[in-house]
Design a protein around this nucleic acid. Structure first.
Length: 427
DNA sequence: AATCTCCTCAACCGCAGGCTC
DNA sequence: CGAGCCTGCGGTTGAGGAGAT
């Protein structure tokens, strides 16, 4: 591979990041925010180009990332979004909190394409593969990499109908995804910073695919039609909704029979599991807290985050500069109703600090603690799980048995543990 | 046990668009 | 208005791991 032009100017490092570099970058951004990325390496004392720092932050270090394998519901949503948006990974990622465009792109290229082909669906067009395609288009990397444009006509009934068929194999309910609605602040949140007016989505949907160049638009992100306010008042049939594409109707509009076949059927329980939705009424402890306790989602309309030094880029990629301690207190462990327990756990994890939490040291520390004190280990794992879930994924863990919690937390750290040997080579 | 093949995913590249001067 | 810089995006690469032989 060649080297980016900015990397020629100095002897800049390339390749995998070492734990030390991660720590420097994390410390810098935690304290000062990223500001101008091109100045970050210098200020943080890194021999990297700004672009590399930005990528590392976005794809790996930022604290609102959801780690671990994609759930079936997430995969289904990606497929459905891809049918509408094509290879606009950043816009697809915007609908999947905690997931990066890179991650989704990789998943698509490595897994989903293959699965679709196995089901006889062309991953590019979302239409059934012809017999010739099935015989000739072996799901190899080489053929995938040279495949053509994947822009899809959203009005293609074949494509969506076909997807519906696929998706119905894995989900039963016809409920739609809830979404944050500025008129209903208590509405569970999927991707609050990215929410756009419905009209905007329709406009873009109408125009977007006819002009593929809009793909690179850095303008407003699509408001995906799945994201209907659900159970917080039915806006369907009122105002502009009455004339909308059927995609906009939710299940409470019984005049719209198409929705259950067009949209991905996902049950509320599945949503709360895979998408981290915090369905409010049934959980008093976290009731309606999906938004309030999710400070890592940087809402441009939120005064608390508007003072950033930030670039004008994607809010979901942003991060409000806070000290490690304040992050831990305010975001990682927002158990304001737990009382003393909070102090204990904050103190416990404060000693690990962010890079440790994110990398091997944390694993080592927890392993050591496990040897000494199993219950302490449990606390840390649960606490860290809460970090991931509280702000982003809400109450998934609360529905799991303790053993499942440990397993899930363990899975979550698999990536980091796998990196340990490699990381220590740099030391 | 050694080697080969395939797969995953972190990180890179080039380009487009926005912003500033 | 255009040049230069910066950011963000999508496509692509290649190292390393896992599984097969």
């Amino acid at each position: 591979m060649g080297r980016h032009s900015c990397c020629y100017k100095q002897k800049l490092r390339k390749g995998l990041w070492s734990p030390e570099e991660d720590e420097k970058l994390m410390n810098h951004i935690t304290k000062h925010g990223h500001g101008c990325w091109s100045s970050v390496p210098k200020l943080a004392g890194l021999q990297r180009c700004g672009k590399s720092c930005r990528l590392r932050w976005i794809n790996y270090l930022r604290p609102d990332l959801k780690r671990g394998a994609f759930s079936q519901e997430e995969e289904d949503l990606i497929i459905e979004l891809h049918a509408v948006l094509g290879n606009r990974w950043s816009q697809i990622a915007a609908q999947l909190p905690g997931r990066t465009d890179n991650e989704i792109k990789n998943l698509w290229n490595s897994c989903i394409k293959k699965k679709l082909r196995q089901k006889g669906i062309d991953p590019n067009t979302h239409k059934p593969l012809s017999d010739a395609d099935r015989r000739g288009a072996a799901p190899t990397i080489s053929t995938e990499r040279t495949s053509g444009s994947s822009d899809v006509n959203p009005s293609s009934a074949g494509a969506l109908g076909n997807l519906s068929h696929l998706l119905s194999e894995t989900a039963q309910s016809s409920m739609l995804l809830p979404v944050y609605d500025k008129n209903h602040p208590e509405t569970p949140n999927l991707a609050r910073p990215k929410v756009q007016p419905k009209e905007l989505f329709l406009d873009q949907l109408a125009a977007g695919h006819e002009s593929p160049s809009s793909c690179r638009s850095s303008g407003p992100t699509l408001y995906f039609p799945f994201q209907q306010p659900l159970g917080y008042g039915n806006e369907c049939g009122s105002g502009d909704g009455a004339n909308m594409n059927s995609l906009w109707y939710n299940q409470s509009d019984f005049n719209c029979s198409t929705i259950s076949t067009v949209m991905p059927p996902v049950s509320p329980s599945a949503l709360s599991t895979s998408m981290g939705l915090n369905l409010p009424p049934e959980n008093p402890r976290h009731g309606g807290a999906g938004i309030g306790n999710a400070p890592f989602y940087w809402d441009g309309s939120n005064p608390s985050s508007s003072g950033s030094t930030g670039s004008s880029g994607s809010n979901s990629m942003g991060f409000e500069p806070q000290s490690t301690t304040s992050i831990l207190e305010n975001s990682v462990f927002p158990w304001t109703d737990i009382g003393q327990e909070k102090d204990t756990r904050v103190h416990l994890v404060e000693e690990l600090k962010w890079p440790d939490l994110l990398h091997g040291t944390f694993a080592e520390a927890t392993t050591a603690m496990q040897n000494q004190n199993q219950s302490l280990y449990d606390d840390v794992i649960k606490a860290e799980s809460q970090f991931n879930m509280e702000g982003i994924c809400a109450s998934w863990f609360q529905n799991q048995q303790p053993q499942q919690q440990l397993q899930a937390a363990s899975d979550m750290y698999d990536k980091d543990l796998q990196r340990l040997p490699l990381s220590f080579e740099h030391i």
